[in-house]
Simulated assay, not measured.
Amino acid sequence: MDFFISDALAQSGGQPGAGLTGLIFPIALIVIFYFLLIRPQQKRAKEHKKLVENLSKGDEVLTNGGIVGRISDVGDTYANLTLAEGVDVRMQKSAVAQVLPKGAMKAGLDKADAALKDDSDKGGKSK
């Protein structure tokens, strides 16, 4: 039955205070994880919750899927997003990534139209 218990471990009489030194590393690791990972994530989650609660009709938003549109109706958990004239999408409010400045949607469409016009003027050939 001696092969189940290592003789070296059975005969060593642990040093007093060694347990406290062994706890310093795990505690330091938990503190580092808290300040580098957990705390910033909680801060971002709190900011996103505040953003979602403050959504209102007429806000121009960017969704997590990359869709840009204007909010036409807001409910408790859902919002209607107008992408273009006559194109409405119903989505969860939590899918909003950020609120864009007023007029950003129109400016983006004008820039895209100008790029398409320049491309068609060059004969449709891209670089």
Rank of each mutant, 00 (worst) to 15 (best):
L81I: 08
I30V: 14
L62Y: 10
Q98C: 13
D113T: 05
T21A: 15
G123A: 05
T21R: 04
K102M: 07
A84V: 06
V96T: 04
G86V: 09
G65D: 14
Y78L: 13
T21P: 02
A45I: 05
G75N: 11
E53R: 06
V87K: 02
V74F: 07
S12F: 15
L100G: 02
P16L: 12
V96P: 06
L55R: 05
S120G: 05
S56E: 14
G69H: 06
H48D: 08
A45S: 12
G66V: 10
G103M: 11
K46R: 13
V31L: 01
V89F: 14
L62Q: 01
I38L: 01
K50G: 09
Q11F: 14
L81G: 03
V96F: 02
V52G: 08
N54P: 12
V99L: 05
P26E: 03
R90F: 00
K57R: 10
V68F: 07
F4Q: 06
L36H: 00
L23Y: 00
Q11E: 15
K49N: 13
L62P: 01
G58F: 01
K102I: 11
G124P: 10
N64R: 13
S126Y: 13
I71S: 03
D59R: 04
G103Q: 01
V89K: 04
K49R: 12
L116R: 10
F35Y: 02
V74Y: 10
Y78W: 14
D118Q: 09
A45N: 03
K125N: 03
I67R: 02
K127L: 15
V96A: 03
G19E: 14
F25Q: 04
S6Q: 04
K50D: 15
F25H: 01
R70H: 00
K46S: 13
Q92M: 12
R90Q: 06
T21V: 06
A115N: 04
A18F: 14
K127R: 15
D76N: 00
L37G: 02
G17F: 12
F3Q: 11
V31P: 00
D2N: 06
S94L: 06
D118F: 05
S72K: 06
V99K: 10
